[in-house]
Simulated assay, not measured.
Amino acid sequence: MTDTAIETRTVTVERDIAYPPEKIWRALTQPHLIEEWLMKADFKPVVDHRFRFSADWGGVDCQVLEVEPHRTLSYSWAGMGLESVVTWTLSATDTGTRLRMEQVGFKPDQQQAYFGAKAGWPRFFGNLEQLLARID
């Protein structure tokens, strides 16, 4: 039997952020905060919860896959032909938190989605850091 699995690519962004995991977790899981740095969403940090990210260009259908408060958040990300998974990992450090985001599942013929994510996620991280500086 041959392995017919398609080789996929991953977008990873990792940053050290000078805020505790609890504060970053709120920004990753509270809909009114998610909307400020990413997109409008009817998100709940509950496994199997289905939600949608919405923007002026359209939206992405998602389902929560894993929730470990202040440590790990994972959800499916399906839109415009892309079936992927986004996983956030928060690790406490001496100066705050190492925040890692991985989006896995870009197929070879999804160059536009892959390069869009490679360009987009660092911008979203910048928005997130600006939000964290403004909230208590």
Rank of each mutant, 00 (worst) to 15 (best):
D16N: 11
T2A: 10
A41I: 00
A27C: 09
E102V: 15
A92T: 12
T2Q: 10
Q112R: 06
L38R: 00
P20L: 14
W57T: 08
D3Y: 02
D109N: 12
P45V: 01
T89A: 11
L131N: 09
I6H: 01
A5R: 13
T87K: 15
K118H: 03
W25F: 02
T87R: 15
F106R: 08
R9A: 10
T8W: 00
T8S: 01
L65P: 01
Y75N: 12
R26T: 10
A92D: 12
F51E: 07
R52Y: 00
K40S: 13
K107W: 12
R26K: 13
Q63L: 04
A55K: 07
Y75C: 01
L131A: 07
Q103L: 06
L65N: 07
E22N: 06
P45T: 10
T2N: 11
E66P: 04
E102M: 13
Q110D: 05
H49C: 01
D16M: 00
K107A: 15
E22T: 11
K23R: 14
D16Q: 03
S91Q: 14
D42K: 08
P31K: 02
F43W: 10
G105K: 05
Q112P: 00
W88L: 04
W37I: 05
T12F: 12
A113T: 11
V67Q: 11
P21N: 10
K118C: 14
V46R: 13
W77I: 08
F124W: 00
E129L: 12
D48K: 15
V67M: 07
R26E: 10
P20H: 08
G116P: 04
P20Y: 02
R98V: 00
V67P: 09
H49G: 03
V104I: 06
E35Y: 04
A119F: 12
